[in-house]
Design a protein around this nucleic acid. Sequence first.
RNA 1: CGGGAAGUAGCUCAGCCCGGCUAGAGCGCUUGGUUUGGGACCAAGAAGUCGCAGGUUCGAAUCCUGUCUUCCCGACCA
Length: 564
Amino acid sequence: MRLSKGFFPTVKEVPSDAVIPSHQLMIRAGLMRQLAAGIFSFLPIGYSVMKKVMNIIREEMDAIGGQEFHLPALNPIELWEETDRVKAFGDIMFHIKNRAMVLAPTHEEVITNIAKNHVKSHNQMPQIWYQIQTKFRNEPRPKSGVLRGRQFTMKDSYSMDSSWEGLDKSYDLHAEAYKKIYTRCGLNFYIVGASSGAMGGSGSQEFMVESNAGEDNLAVCVESGYAANVEIATSNVPKAERKSESKPLQEIHTPNCKSIDEVASFLKLPTTQCAKSLIFINANQPILVLMLGNDQLNESKLQAVFGQDIRPAQPEELLKFTGADAGSIGPVGLKNFTIVADKRLENANGLVCGANKNDYHLLDLDLQRDAQIKSYHDFRSVEEGELSPDGKGKLRIIKGIEVGHIFKLGTKYSVAMKANFLDKDGKENPIIMGSYGIGVERIVACHIEQHHDEFGIKWQKSIAPYDVHLICVNMNSESVVSKAEEIYSKLEKNGISVLFDDRTDASPGFKFKDADLLGMPLQVIVGEKNLKNGQIEIKERNSGERRTASVDAIIEEVVKFVNA
RNA sequence: CGGGAAGUAGCUCAGCCCGGCUAGAGCGCUUGGUUUGGGACCAAGAAGUCGCAGGUUCGAAUCCUGUCUUCCCGACCA
């Protein structure tokens, strides 16, 4: 492609509403333009990268036996009522005004609908069905360019199995395919254990790219290889000790002591001898959660136990339910409460807790003796520097961008939509499903986040829009132009895709800047300076390394680089 | 949905506080000329209902009210 003929709207100045590097560069290098919040037009060079990513995805999905579908984005709302997800998605789902239709935010329902009508026997499984298609989600706050949009491209796939072992296998196939996809796309990524959230199912993992632009926090440990979303991450921290003897409960005046730190320093006790009480409301019922010392409660873990609707109590509710304000609340003597505690507190004694009376605390609380603990769960958020669960190394908390998520769905959708098959014994069972997603634009943005410098993008070979950026430095020199033209046509004949900067109205400096911004892996620079010595310069964008090759050897040199 | 910021030429912005005549700059664009190895130079030019609506005023980009849009932080994110 000739730069003089094609549409490559590069921009020198940083767009005012782009904050993160990938967003800025996707605008500056002419990959896309914004139409509205979270909605982007992809321009030729941007779409060419998208297509390369999608092809890698196709190849790897086909390699595990996936079959490509193309499902409608416009769905009858009735379909979504069958699984009660009109309510579950709420405002996230776009609704069509003049017909009872919605724009699909994902495709479990459509897939299950097809499976229900046609997958009737265990002999027809396993199946892996996928598509690459536009998804619509009415995000309350689109941000960071293409990283969180209202319309985006997703590879979504669905596995159908007749057994749970089969699901495990389909899931593992996807995990392996995903690793290949992200590796081929030039991304450094982590696979982390994740919360299944309201999606349901028995397990899920996320594929995460480390980046400051990320919205998720991950706990990772290089030494042990442990990696998990902090929503579910655990660490190796000691439990509170149980002393051999429990002293009697004792009420003590603790004026103006609200926080655990204030209470601990007032009583001259370590914070790890304090039990912090937090009140939540679930289905109008109060729940008291006990945490050790200054441990932070992880609300995702709380939701995993009590469901999504649990919420913190309002200050007036605290007073109503416990008779005290925050800072003086405890588990002793509460009526009609569900009391749960973090695992670190299991059967502990000798603790300090609120007395349900403002400015008073209780000493020597024994959780076995003095409180009705319904159950113990892991509720705490892990902290930077704690030991990984296997104790082999320290945890680091990093920010990550989710580029993929795989779920073992189980039978949630097949049961809801009555997608049943007959097993070997002629018995009817719900199809066992998995669902697996990859955000295509996110891969592109993450690639740029991981491969760029102050001058522009550094495409890795696998997804670069062109293999080579050919620069003709002196358009007024006939010999230079004819040599550049010759190289252009020879490279194309050798199957190399070339972006040829043959503009007559751009200065050399301008061309070099554009080449660095656009970021093709190899720049071939044809200029008078080197040509008079029979040399052509080549520059590798990734390393910045420059060298020259003789006019006779240049084609071979470039072909070698591209195919390396 | 809560908090903050911003909408002036294709882009990046100044002007607004303290109202005034014909609304500016740089980049980009058009034409002509010069230039050609790291975002060239000279000259001439085109281009803006100052987001929109209403109000105050002799007079509004500027003051007031409302509204829309965009960005950032938070909440939310199957």
